[in-house]
Structure formats: C-alpha cells, structure tokens
Design a binder for these strands. Sequence first.
DNA 1: AATGGGTGCAACCGCGATCTT
DNA 2: GAAGATCGCGGTTGCACCCAT
Length: 283
Amino acid sequence: MVRQPYQKKGTWTPDEDQKLVAYIARYGIWNWNEMPRFAGLQRSGKSCRLRWMNYLRPNIKRGNFTREEEETIIHLQKKLGNRWSAIAARLPHRTDNDIKNFWNTRLKKRVILQNNNSASATTETSSSVEENSSDADSSALLNIPTTADFPEPFAYSNPFSPSGCHQTVEVDNSYSMEENSPDADSLILPNIPTMADFPEPLTYGTAFSSSGCHQTAEIDENYIMGETFVSSENYWEILSFVEQPLMAEGLDCEAVSPNSQLWHSHHELCYDPADDFWVNPLI
DNA sequence: AATGGGTGCAACCGCGATCTT
DNA sequence: GAAGATCGCGGTTGCACCCAT
C-alpha cells in the first residue's frame, strides 16, 4: 500500500469537502485508499470514507431527531443492541455515527432513567396510570414499531462499488407505501438521492436521478456532470482536481489524459463525440 | 469577565470481515 | 488455501460550544 508522506488529521475544511464531493460526484468511489491522492487530498482513505459516509454523501438528514426516530432507535437498540449500522439501515437518511452519538449522549441516559423509574414504579403499587401517561416520553414509547412494521430491506446497494465496478441499484418499486406500511412516516425508504439532497453549505449542488443508477452533479448551475456526462469544455476544469496530486508527484498529466491507459485504468472515461460528452460507464 | 463543568458531535482508532491476488 | 489489501463497524477521544458560578 502506498502511504502518503503526510496525512492530515482533524476537522475537514470546506475546501477539502468540496474536493472530495466533486471527485466522487465525477468519478465515483473506486478505492478509498487511492482516491485521496487523485482528489488532491492529504487525508487517509479511511478519513475520506468516514467524511463521505457521515457528512458529505447525499440524502443525509441532519439536525434534531424526531420523536418517531427516537422511539425507533430505543426500540431497535433494545432489540439489536449497539449494532448502529443495522439501526441506521432502518432509519432513513440517518448515519450510524449520528445515531450512535445521539444514543450515547441523550437516549441512553433517558432509557436508564426510565428503567429506574419503571423499576421503582413496580414497587410502588400506588402509582397511577394517569401519572405515567402524562410523561410524553413514556407514552410515546407505547407506540413503538416492531420489526414486522418494517419492510424487508431494499435491494439498494452503493452504486460506487468498492471494487470500482458499477453496481446496479435495485429498488423494489413494487413495494407499496399504502399497502405495506402501517404508518407512512415510519416507512423505511431507500436512500435514493434527490435534487435537494446535497447539503446547503456546499457551493455546488449534486443531484441524482430517481432511478438511483445515474448521478448528476452540478457546479455553478452550468457545471453538469450528468449520469455521468461532462461536456468536454468543462471536463478539463474538473480534471484539475485530478491533476493536482499527479503534478505534485511529478507525474505527467498528459500520461493520465482520457486517452491514456493509466487514465482509463482509474477512471474508465469514454468520450462520446456525438454529444460532446465524457461518459464514465462505471457510474 | 473569567473559569470550570457539562454536552454534543466530528473524527480517530482498532479490529474483524470480506475481497483480491 | 494463504497472505495482503481494503472495507465497515463500534468504541472512544478531542474539541468547540454553552451555561452556571
């Protein structure tokens, strides 16, 4: 494994975020360890992956957890234990790290408190139902969904295969919200990104088609990196993301031009002269 | 205004699982 | 089948922020 001479740690800067998002939007995820080098980032692949998974990837819901989400987490934690990724899979748009943090900082204490309260309540025969029902948290917990309330996991896989090969995104379109979900709000939706999915603070937007198979990223409105097509004139602007690390290493950028073997080995781009677009068949 | 404790969250670390050669 | 590379997960840490004193 090739190691960077220096790998930055700590908080990510907006510039680093932009580089990573733009690179992934353009080329997909082909190898976390190699990617930072090509994206011009002095970060470990692990750090890049974490940043992408927990913050930058589309469709991440941030901010306060709803009551329903809290209930689901409490229920699933009780059922599954600290299997945060499994819990996150049942909470649309939430990351396992977010859920873990939320549990550790807030829910755990509350649950412990509730357990203590309920334990003491059982010893106090005088405690009334009315008193308990006045506790919003306790009453809400009565409506905890069971695993039977959740549909089978969608066959949704990361279109950016770790191996660099394109994985098909399969969404069970036959699944009917009305027919199968007792509560539309609790339906677990696949993480198919939509136009509004990229975080606001970024200076560019990224949009994804509803099929989930194709991706479109936009930079400055006109910067279309669609499915994944890039007009040839914009292509070379984007390429600067890739050239930076290569130039830093003294590599000839021409050697990794879209016509070179090296380039194709990493990016698999094809130029479509009919439409004046660069096409990445892997994405 | 200074300071110390509590809290929330982003990020790191270690390790097991999985994949590739 | 073995070894190395890579990925993904869960536990933990570090730091910024808030608030009470």
